[in-house]
Design a protein around this nucleic acid. Sequence first.
DNA 1: GATACGACGCTACG
DNA 2: CGTAGCGTCG
Length: 668
Amino acid sequence: VCDASRLSQEERALVLRETAQASVIVLTMVYQDGTAQLNAEQKSCPPVSGVLVLLKSELDAMESEGCSAGLPGSEGSGCKVIFLKLEQRPAWAQQGYRQDRFSKEMLLCILGSAQDVICFKAKDLLCTALQYFGKEISWKQVALCRILDPQIAAWLLDPADTASCFWDLVAKRCKTRAAVKPCAGAREFEQQPNVSGSLLVLYRLMMDLRASLQEQGLWKLFCSVELRLTTVLAVMEIHRIHVDKDALEKTSKILGMKLKQLEQEAHQAAGQQFLVSSSSQLRVVLFEKLRLHERCENKKLPKTVLRQQQSTSEATLMQLQDLHPLPKIILEYRQVHKIKSAYVDGILSCMISPFYNPKWGNTSSAVTGPITSKKPNIQAIPRQSIQIIKKQYVQGKEPEVITIHPRSMFISEEGWTFLAADFSQVELRLLAHLSSDPELLRVFQEPLAAGDVFISLASQWKGLPEGKLKPEDREQAKRIVYSVVYGAGKERLSEILGLTAEQAGQFVDSFLQKYKQVRAFTQKTIQQCQDQGCVVSIMGRRRHLPHILSPDWTLRNQAERQAVNFVVQGSAADLCKMAMIRIFSHIASSPTLTARLIAQIHDELLFEVEDSQVEEFAGVVQTTMESLQHIDCFGVHLKVPLRVMLSSGKSWGSLAELARPRSLPHRL
DNA sequence: GATACGACGCTACG
DNA sequence: CGTAGCGTCG
């Protein structure tokens, strides 16, 4: 290993030339405690010390299978390992300036080009690099880089096999064991501090994974979707979102007061003290003390899944709320408590000054394919506001009503605006496409693009004119549709709808009666899964479901639902990922556009856009997203058009719909 | 006697 | 169906 800081000016120039010409570059980050990204997974990420770079000028000399010359270390021909120190030094510290510059030059040379680069957990490296560069380079300069990441490759091969660490992956996926260990086990090798040897193992691993991906026809998906997405996510993660901390703290206090008040009311209603947030204590009060279940034997009360205990879930409490004041109080308590703990205090605890950065992941345990957000989960922040009635004990004052909306705590920077682009009913449109149900297709193909799909669906299904429908009909239609899409059974639907299982079953039946091809699609999907052992999304991503042939009825049924669910949700995830990539590339190649992607909430993309560019960018986003109806390189040709809803505003909580000139109905 | 951790329950989002 | 995350309890 050669330390870049000890190189002379000439040697550095040589290294840069070699880097530009290298056929393969293998990277890993090294932390200050001496561990690397390749070591057993660390929960807390220590500060980064530098990056280890392996330059390989020859395309693998050891292709003669199983040759004992494949020892790490003896394989060094055409290899060079360089250590780049990445020191986060204060701006005023001038010493080491040249080394710092060289590190940056090297990194940019590696990340700015389109060579074969390999790194385990590439997103972390990209984030670190981008932070290291700071404002010296634009993220656009690394927008094209595609780092081959074995973790993502393995996930694509089998999404169910949950995030294994590097050495587990090697043990599982490396066919050429000779490269890993001469005689000892992989585990033993791991103990050695031979990080540069590990880089060669990383290289072998990636080559083997590449072969597997190519065999299974997943290579294109890997390169042009998952890898490109890594860059998108890294850039998104670097961007800080502005949060109104004062408002959050104020809200926290108000919610705290409200919780105390509700707690007292609950105790009063129950006639005893108990821990309101404890479901087991509530169960005792509700069913042993008050014996509410005895008063509603006509209704079936849900039970907890694992034990045959009485559930205290929302569905139960809804049924009981007419019998006693307590259930209603608990429902409100839970709602307020959830908002306070998860979305107010939760966000406060992950904030760094007035900003915060959520973590984004497109791998690990996401079996269905969608990307996920963590710390906090920005995707689960309530869509609608809640009303809090603050009781005033001062005489003569009206009770004060306060509206609380966690999304409005997210505010755009001065001079910038949030732009949200929502794929309207992607999943339903996909269901129409996948099932080719003529009735369902008609809903989307007719020139009623401006109308509400669920209303027309409800009217079509109930045989009533749209004007005669009530809002609850629309809600019901929506819920039934999605329960079919998600593969939920009638029991689950009855809980959601607050009806009996029979009624819910009837709704599902009549839906499937109307849209006959949907049932055919479900059966076709299950059949295909049984034949091939896996189901495939619209862009070719797979999920293996071994239980589809299980003799166990429960397991098999679950696998059947998962199969249908995956095809629809997985395909929706594919489209959203493509949308992110396409828009990202568009911005990157534009000299003027500065818009940044901030968050992805399943089928909604949230951007922060300079005020002056909102209109132009909105057009780009809409065109790009709607053009995904046809993705030629993946053979995607949807039978239904895609529709995008655009809205903008200064806070995420108060977005107003944007006029969309192009999509106005062409009728009178 | 304090405390760490996994199992379980609940519920936001889609 | 499947993400994350908060809470209780043994």
